[in-house]
Design a protein around this nucleic acid. Structure first.
Lengths: 201, 201, 201, 201
DNA sequence: AATGAATGAGCTTTCATTCAT
DNA sequence: CATGAATGAAAGCTCATTCAT
């Protein structure tokens, strides 16, 4: 009834479409979701979708950017914790919270992780985040005086990645908090000498 | 011994097709790989592929069965090591070797992990392997007298899963052996009390 | 009145496609007619056909529904004739007219009559029409005081069915009116005792 | 073990294949039946089928020829009955018996009746049989002194054709003998003046 | 006589995307 | 802003038929 724009802000429609896309991608996978599906989920038509996003891929990219920003800001916050032990815990708990609260996105993200054709344009951002993560934790372990801080960082990253995948695959049955607690304890434990070298093949 | 044949043995052609499919699936993803692509990679035509496999999905399933058998036999071997610490190390080194030697398969496997529609018929086998893995390591940690053996097992499983994915995503740049060594050391280290509980939200 | 439109009304295109499909089905049979054939006959492309009909089968079904409605309304009209003898004649002449004016449809209809796989979804409507026909004529013969009215009705139905098929198979050479006249006369003639029983086998 | 031919006479295999084809055609229709289906039903392979029949169509043609011969000989027998009334009854009962005993063939025959592409090579034989039937009954009605004998013959032919189709579509529920009895009585009844001419359109 | 292997042609259907209105 | 119409490309799959053995 207001004389100004009957229709929502462009940004609102974009967000609405991204939410719809997220749901459909999460449900059917990126390839399995048709542009029509997404438009229908958002309550509009495909050509209109193209009014807001130049392609299906661009929609996915927008989802990655939105979540990337979210992750970055959360991490920046936690990275500011002065005590390194507390910082590590904060980073992990925050990661867990993000994944729990954005399960759909992570399902999508893990689902396209191995699709080169799809990831082409995302690869840079994703790789950057991974690198940042490893750097952050390498610094942290260095600060803690742990040996081989980069290996520790990589291991921790792998653990988190695997763990979040397992959680997202079965959110109701997975003891996320227990495992996170254990991971934190493990990450802060003193180093051990490697007990066995790789067997000669 | 075997004379030159114009018509290869059925089993040979099947294996040849599976290898081709593996390469194409690894390169383009399951959805991105067309039956024609696979047939062409194998040097034959699409209808002939259907002579050997009833469907594209069946081809994928055959790949999973082949690798599943391989994993199982390797695991059975390592699971027979009497000393639990050595057994743990053996299981991890063997896992790493399998992944290294069958990168394409694991790329494919991780690629379809979140595609419900595709996994339907594979789900049983895959879930069984995961369960077996967790069981095996739960028993192992119990044997070692570690507390919370199931959480440890789950964590270890997550670590391996994430680690192998990171390796497969960048096989040349990833220090697989170093990380595996560290994971083994970590898994065998004595437990620590959890330093921090999850923050109240 | 209506301005020149680049995009025709959906209903028009649907009708246009149905006409094209009817011609192609009549010419090549249901199985022999490809969706491309039909689209080409209608002057458009196959994917566009799917814009208007969800499947090839749905197209056939639409044809049956259209003709079913036509038959029903024509029959309802003739069934209202009060005098039973005149009613019988009216029903038969109307049937003949419908078949003559919709030869293509009846060719198609008779062509799929024995294709279980195709008829599945049409079966209900077709069976209902047959049953209606027999009921209508059973009532009519009862009203006329003829013995064994149901057998007479079934016989008449069979005669019409066969006769229309023969006509449709050779529309130019078939003396449709003569035969219909005779059938009417025959149907209204008084009953005769059966002259001979079936021979013992 | 007998030194002479391990394998059946060529004619036997042909007959065996024709029986198999008949069953499969009856079950799935001509188009719906694949050559592999037929070969499998006969317990052999497709290329071997091609050893006995040059094409799928030729198989169908052979079926028509076999049944045509059967019909002809049965008709020839019944046509020899001296009394025309008895002859008519004999012809109809024999027709009914043939259809009852060869339901599969008639199902197939009626199923392809409107498929020009399939019938091309059968058309001659089928048309000849129809013509023979009409001639035979025209002569018979002439002999009986009935007016318009050709129209009567055509009508009778239509009745039989329709009736046999209805029977074949529902063999268990159809009162074939009752209807045949009625048709015979009707065919032998004296003529009636046509009660109503076709309405002016 | 018998068969596994092989293929060209073609099927129905889906999709991302564009265009005219 | 919004949409129905439109399409080229390609998908998975089936088939009648042939060929080498």
């Amino acid at each position: 009834m207001s004389p100004r724009r009957r229709h929502a802000h462009s940004a609102d429609v974009r967000a609405h479409l991204m939410d719809a896309a997220l749901r459909v991608f999460a449900r059917k996978g990126y390839d399995g979701a048709s542009v029509r599906d997404i438009a229908a989920e958002a309550g509009l038509t495909a050509p209109l979708l193209y009014h807001y996003f130049p392609s299906k891929k661009a929609l996915l990219q927008a989802l990655f950017e939105r979540s990337g920003a979210l992750v970055m800001s959360a991490f920046a916050q936690a990275a500011a914790v002065p005590d390194p032990r507390e910082r590590l815990a904060a980073l992990l708990w925050i990661s867990a919270r993000i994944v729990r609260e954005h399960q759909d996105f992570w399902r999508v993200s893990y689902g396209v992780r191995f699709q080169r054709a799809v990831l082409d344009d995302l690869a840079v951002g994703v790789a950057a985040q991974s690198a940042l993560f490893v750097q952050l934790f390498t610094a942290l372990f260095t600060e803690l005086g742990q040996p081989a801080p980069q290996v520790r960082a990589r291991t921790l990253f792998a653990t988190l990645d695997g763990l979040f995948q397992h959680y997202v695959l079965d959110p109701d049955g997975y003891p996320l908090d227990d495992v996170i607690s254990h991971v934190i304890a493990q990450a802060l434990s003193p180093p051990q000498p490697p007990p066995l070298s790789p067997p000669a093949e």
